[in-house]
Write a protein that binds this DNA or RNA. Structure first.
Lengths: 135, 135
DNA sequence: CTTGACTCTATAGTTACTATAGAGTTTAAA
DNA sequence: TTTAAACTCTATAGTAACTATAGAGTCAAG
C-alpha cells in the first residue's frame, strides 16, 4: 500500500509518517518504480505502536528506546517499567502544578468584578505587583 | 542599570530580556556610548509584570495584549476577565486530560511485573495492540 | 596594557509536528 | 489520446519560548 492508505488506516497524517521515517522510528524499505513508498501490514502495526505511545505522551526518544528494546526479546524489561513509572511521576507532578495554577488564577479572577475600567482592574493591579506569591 | 543587573533583580536571564525586547514586550529606549542597553526602575516593574503573567502560563501574545490594554486606563477591563476565565478553563481541561493519562499509565504499569523479559512484557504487548482504548 | 567580566548581534538548536513550493507519477474521465 | 485530478516526492520554513553558541566589541581593575 502507498503512504496515503497507511495514513488513513492509522489516522496519522502523511507528513507525520514521513517525519517518523526521517527520525528512524519507522522503516520503509521498498519503493515503487515511480519512487513512491510502499508498505505492508507490519507497517500498520509499527505505526500504531508509535501512535499508542504518543497518546500516552511518551516522547519520540522514548518510543525509539522502546522499539529498540522490542528488538531484543530475551532482555529484561525493567527499563520499560522504569520509563512508565517515571512518566507517571511526571504526569502527577504536572497535575500538582496545574492545581496550584488553577487556584492562583481563580483567586486572581476574584479580584476583579465586571464593569470596571482597566485602571481599576484588580487583575491587572495584581499582575503589576512586584512579586506574585507562589503557593 | 545595565542588562545584567536587571536580570539579577528580576530573576530573568539576560538572553530572555533581549528576547522580550525583540518581541516588543519590553522597550529599551536608551543605550550607553558603548551601545549597552540602559534600564531604569520602571523596567523592573515591566519585566516583573511579564514574569508574573508567565508564571500563570499566559502566552506571550496574551501578555502583549495585557500590556496594550494597560495603556488605555479608561477602557473596560472585560477582555482581561475573559482572558483569565478562558485560561482557567484551559487549565481545567488539561487537568482532566492528565487525569485520564494517569489512569491509563497506571493500568498499563499494572500489566507488567518485575523479572520479566521483553518478550513477556505486558506493557510492550499492550502498546503493540492495534488500538489502545481511550478512556 | 592586559586580563577578565560584561555586553553586543546574529544564528542555530530545542519538540513534534504542520504547511508550503515546485516537481514528478498515476489514475480516471473526456 | 489527451488532460485533469489526485496523489506522491524532496526540501525548506514555520510554530513557542526560550537557550546556547560564535565572534566581536566595551569597560574596570590591577
Amino acid at each position: 500500500m502507498k503512504i496515503g492508505e497507511l495514513a488513513k488506516l492509522t489516522g496519522c497524517s502523511v507528513q507525520t509518517i514521513r517525519y517518523y521515517e526521517k527520525e528512524k522510528l519507522l522503516a520503509s524499505k521498498r519503493r515503487s518504480e515511480g519512487n513512491f513508498r510502499l508498505y505492508d501490514q507490519s507497517a500498520v502495526g509499527q505505526l500504531m505502536f508509535i501512535k499508542n505511545c504518543r497518546s500516552l505522551d511518551l516522547a519520540l526518544s522514548e518510543v525509539r528506546q522502546l522499539i529498540e528494546l522490542n528488538q531484543s526479546p530475551g532482555m529484561h524489561c525493567d527499563d520499560v517499567n522504569k520509563m512508565i513509572d517515571n512518566h507517571i511521576e511526571q504526569v502527577e507532578q504536572r497535575m500538582k502544578e496545574l492545581e496550584g495554577l488553577r487556584r492562583h488564577l481563580t483567586s486572581l479572577r476574584d479580584s476583579c468584578s465586571t464593569n470596571r475600567t482597566v485602571e481599576e482592574c484588580g487583575i491587572l493591579r495584581n499582575l503589576s505587583a512586584k512579586q506574585l506569591e507562589n503557593p
